[in-house]
Design a protein around this nucleic acid. Sequence first.
DNA 1: CTGACGCATCAACGAAAGTTGATGATAACC
DNA 2: GGTTATCATCAACTTTCGTTGATGCGTCAG
Lengths: 107, 107
Amino acid sequence: MATTTPLSLERAARLFHALSDEKRLRIVEQLRSGERCVCDLTGALSAGQSLLSFHLKTLKEAGLVTDRRQGRWAYYSLNPQAMAELEELAGALRADAEQSGPAHCCG
Amino acid sequence: MATTTPLSLERAARLFHALSDEKRLRIVEQLRSGERCVCDLTGALSAGQSLLSFHLKTLKEAGLVTDRRQGRWAYYSLNPQAMAELEELAGALRADAEQSGPAHCCG
DNA sequence: CTGACGCATCAACGAAAGTTGATGATAACC
DNA sequence: GGTTATCATCAACTTTCGTTGATGCGTCAG
């Protein structure tokens, strides 16, 4: 069996928080099909450029996206490693196979 | 190929938000090994009873946990269905296999 | 019936997050 | 060199969230 990763709750909270906003999820949805520049995203989400920068920064600080500068454009794309980490995390939160019964309360 | 689920971003944001707090993650961690009453959790997290009720309500409203009343105790446990939904969601957010290339910006 | 226990709910507060508009930095175009 | 386009950053504001202590409700024990 694979040794379960340390499962840092602080890290987990950061990842989940970055995905806890609908606009950021829409950004991720856009990036699934490849990298996008900010101006593309403002169009797709019909949101202000300033707001997009804010959300992209949040996603970037969580490690979920990476950015690449080319000319005057900034291209953002998903970080596959972080997405894998997320999926692994979701699996790690599931209930144990062996339950410890209803248990005597406040023991 | 499997048809991708509707993937409601509103629902996804709700789930992720419920898990975006470290204390709530600690609650989930506790519940992985079976149901617990509130007084057990206050001990495990060394947090006030009022605060626990607040976080448990957040988790419950997101559908991640269920509660059962017995006598004067309230037992909380994980909702396996929601945990599965979470894992499925994490998988659905990964990048597509076929990328649409760097793309011409602002097309 | 009375008092103690377990829990939810409420009000109040401070902290953090989301939003908007303005400003500034860098790169391209004329 | 001056102008325009793309994007990041900042200040200011509003909303939401997390936290605490007090209050209320139901349940068990004496």
